[in-house]
Design a protein around this nucleic acid. Structure first.
Length: 476
RNA sequence: CGGCGCGUGGCUCAGCUUGGUAGAGCGCUGCGUUCGGGACGCAGAGGUCGCAGGUUCAAAUCCUGUCGCGCCGACCA
């Protein structure tokens, strides 16, 4: 049976994907616009998702020895300019503070677009000996990048994120940490957000400003576009040299530290929406659903109905559960539950109470199950777990069925002309080919995956000997 | 920064061409009837029409300027 469209207020994704996205975000009450372009109110429903992300990710960080800290929001211009590539990368989009009250500042301050320079300035002071290493710090904060085009969660001028910054005694330690954090991101995205990712390295063209290597986790959205969902950078000793971060090693020689940084942002919430949601609204994986179960009483004014609903709520208190006892009609409540992406809905009315059971309806499949009250807790647990796994499986199946292989440029062009998704193709390693592909097809290299395949011996673009297999795609 | 579109109750918009008492639907408040996929009746509240000039007896409407927002490009998480 075709999917029944129940909510007229949401534009269908087939009709207009961008509008669908905006509708879902608004209807689920995740954000509200404000009078400043690109600056969003993250409403309670949206912020609760972020809190669940933060909590689970923060736990994973700490298991690897990360400590949290907080550094200032302002960076003096002179500090920002110490690392040349870095400042060139970010200068076009920084916001500046020029006045304190009425008085013009002697040195203007940039609102952090990222905090490498501040961490460097700090590490320069606290790192003296190899005994002070490694430094493994993270901060949860907001950063500002003055984007021209903005979209809720995907690209806002101020956004929430975490940025980890580490300093190590050796290049090997720094590289190991860079990859370790990338793996944490990949695991988090798959296990918690149910978003499958491709792990790999960015090409030189797509690398972070000032990094020697940038690793990424790339996800495929429902419309076939790619979303860079998390990055981890190895800076080598470039920043250390620019900022003078040196330590005395065991051999009593003065050496520069090797650094990394890694971050994910509220952008992941945008990914969550574009991977799982449907034409009825938001669909959330249970692990990041602020409300996992909504109990909807039917004919709630009849004696015993609300009492039963409260009883079920108490039985389910180990889950994030709520009762919708507002005086809206049941149909309204069903639609609300769906727009807000609440994984499970329990319907309970006089008929059920008499029969000693209730109805559970899954958000993702809309599958309804009748469950005796005595089996409710076990069934809810089972359904939430199943939903979490099946959402990942479905997303993976979608990604795999939208991943293509191209062996020559004609095929490459034809695929991007006809389809949307990832295309795996060989690459010679030169930026000219990347530029040409971007120019002609608006397609960029997403990453050189860790899992390499030898699809052919020559570059898909120029025909010269190939160095790497690359995932290509159109990106958000 | 270029292209397109839009600023009128909380929301979506009509009214503007041709100047003349600010409208509708939804939402909101109260009361009553309803309740297994966005129920209904009755009674209410709510707007200096983005902002600033100008034209006019009279401006949401015409003119000039300005600010802001959304979408699409280029650039970027």
């Amino acid at each position: 049976m075709a999917e029944k469209k129940l909510v007229e207020a949401i534009t269908s994704m087939e009709e207009d994907f961008a509008q669908w996205y905006t509708d879902v975000v608004k209807k689920a009450e995740l954000i509200d616009y404000t009078s400043v372009k690109g600056c969003m109110v993250i409403r309670p429903a949206g912020y609760a998702i972020w809190e669940l992300i933060q909590k689970q990710l923060d736990d994973m960080f700490k298991e690897t020895g990360v400590q949290n800290a907080y550094l200032p929001m302002f960076i003096p211009e002179s500090l920002l300019q110490k690392e040349k590539d870095h400042v060139e990368g970010f200068a076009p989009e920084v916001a500046w503070v020029t006045h304190g009250g009425q008085q013009e500042l002697q040195e203007r301050l940039c609102v952090r677009p990222t905090s490498e320079t501040l961490f460097c300035d700090y590490y320069k002071n606290v790192v003296q000996s190899y005994r002070d290493l490694p430094q493994v710090l993270n901060q949860w904060c907001s950063v500002v990048r003055w984007e021209k085009e903005t979209r809720p969660f995907l690209r806002s001028r101020e956004f929430l994120w975490q940025e980890g910054h580490t300093a190590h005694a050796t290049a090997e330690d720094a590289e190991a940490r860079t990859l370790q954090m990338l793996n944490v991101y990949a695991e988090f995205l798959e296990k918690v957000l149910a978003i499958p990712v491709i792990k790999g390295q960015k090409t030189e063209k797509e690398r972070f400003a000032g990094a020697v290597a940038t690793y990424t986790v790339e996800a495929l959205m429902h419309d076939g576009k790619a979303l860079q969902s998390g990055t981890s950078h190895n800076f080598g000793d470039g920043f250390a040299k620019a900022f003078g971060i040196q330590f005395a090693d065991r051999d009593n020689k003065l050496k520069y530290v090797h650094q990394t940084s890694w971050g994910v942002s509220t952008r992941m919430i945008g990914g969550l929406i574009m991977v799982h949601s449907d034409n009825s609204g938001l669909v959330l994986p249970p692990k990041v659903a602020p409300v996992q179960v909504m109990i909807i009483p039917i004919q709630q004014r009849k004696e015993g109905v609300l009492e039963k609903a409260a009883e079920l709520e108490e039985m389910l208190k180990d889950f994030r559960v709520k009762v919708d006892d507002s005086d809206k009609s049941p149909g309204w409540k069903f639609s609300e539950q769906e727009m807000r992406g609440i994984p499970l809905r329990i319907e309970v009315g006089p008929k059920d109470i008499e029969a000693g059971k209730c109805v559970i309806c899954r958000r993702d499949t809309r599958e309804k199950t009748e469950v005796p009250f005595a089996e409710l807790v076990g069934k809810v647990k089972e359904l939430l777990e199943r939903m979490q796994t099946e959402m990942l499986e479905r997303a993976r199946a979608h990604r795999d069925s939208h991943t293509y292989v191209a062996k020559d440029y004609e095929e490459f062009k034809r695929i991007f002309g006809e389809k949307t998704g990832f295309v795996k193709a060989m690459w010679c390693g030169c930026q000219d080919c990347e530029d040409k592909i971007k120019e002609e097809l608006s397609v960029t290299s997403r990453c050189m995956p860790f899992e390499q395949e030898q699809l052919s011996d020559v570059c898909v673009c120029c025909g010269k000997p190939a160095k790497k297999m690359v995932y290509w795609g159109r990106a958000y």
